[in-house]
Design a binder for these strands. Sequence first.
DNA 1: ATCACTACTGACATATCCTGTCAGTAGCAT
DNA 2: ATGCTACTGACAGGATATGTCAGTAGTGAT
Lengths: 229, 229
Amino acid sequence: MRRADRLFEIIETMRSTTKAVTAAELSHELGVSERTIYRDISGLQGQGVPIEGEAGIGYVLRPGFHMPPLMFTIEELEAIVLGARLAGQRADKDLQKAADRVLSKVKSVIPDQMQSRMDRIPLYAPPTYWPSHNAGEMALIRECIRKEIKISIDYSDLKENVTTRIIWPVAVAFFAESTLLAAWCELRNDFRHFRIDRMQQVRTLEERFNGGGGRLLQSWERQVTGKNR
Amino acid sequence: MRRADRLFEIIETMRSTTKAVTAAELSHELGVSERTIYRDISGLQGQGVPIEGEAGIGYVLRPGFHMPPLMFTIEELEAIVLGARLAGQRADKDLQKAADRVLSKVKSVIPDQMQSRMDRIPLYAPPTYWPSHNAGEMALIRECIRKEIKISIDYSDLKENVTTRIIWPVAVAFFAESTLLAAWCELRNDFRHFRIDRMQQVRTLEERFNGGGGRLLQSWERQVTGKNR
DNA sequence: ATCACTACTGACATATCCTGTCAGTAGCAT
DNA sequence: ATGCTACTGACAGGATATGTCAGTAGTGAT
């Protein structure tokens, strides 16, 4: 049995029982070694499948693997659709695809009668004709924020001076005119904001930084709201 | 990207669109050759996934494939949160509240560990400092679109000439610089676009119009996309 | 009828990555 | 303390996934 098929099989097996399933059972059932099962499960978890393993117990598929039916009002659907369209226009290709998937997932969990209305929601986000450059890098940047990976950028400021900086990316702000990356700048030893379209080059580094479980983000938020007030 | 991941990707891609998807598109999107796509799809079909292919057309996922969708991924949550924030900034108070309710509903169905991550999604839509006037009327306008109620507006054009028109509102377009209402104009007997912030007054009428179950919207879409080409 | 586009199949050499084996660490329940 | 289990790392060999090339056939538009 090929790996690709096996992954589907594992999900189905776990879905069909409420008890915990051990790696040994799965390995016997599917005719592969335990080591392979551990690798498969790790792969599934990496794809977001909520399998939880506990030593001494086994694996359980957390409820929350499938989306339960959801009820939205027509106005809430308008908000979702408009939001997905706006986000799709402003952000990168990957996020745009994610927004599309959100719409299709939402559509498939709401009652039938709502589904047809969802296609006809008359709120549009037309393409912006001043596409921010480096939108392609934004997917990478988002990933680095999530994984807390340092990046190095060549940044050209207002006077066209180019500096190379190592920064710790923490947040992205979608202003109407431009898109800004907020980051801790090792050069300035403080938070700085960088326009995505002024980044000449974006390189991910091996090194990671410690965001303190959101504390870095919080201290940035404090600094920004403090200044703006 | 590994084959096992790709198969899930293909399903999600096909689920997220109603149009047919060609092997060439998939191959480009996933970074593999067309030959591999054909092999992947053949594999999925072998596992019972109802993908249908037609020469000259592409692939479609047969409706009735009603596997409940998988839970949102982190990236999809990012799209939802950013979308809600953008929509909340651009639209009216009511829609903003609806967007908030969407977030809390979504939050209530996702696994615990995801909930805390959702609060810390670092994508922001800062307030626009050129608030479109009459945003307050937008909730009313959206309602009239839904219920197909005629409205009367006093509209001031580029030269400050004010005209009073009876219009049939069909759609709202959120451009970067302004927000436009698309409507059938009884005065001009054609579709016209009105900037929300140029409307002096908005009055709902008793009379309703017949949108033909989306046909009016469609004919507007045709006209707009035709002109843009 | 022709053309452009597309799904689909087969063959084959190559390189990828999947797999089992072995070894070891650590958490949970009894 | 013991047994069960999840989990990780290293490594070598082999299964298999992949790209390339070539070709057939169906669909829709002109």
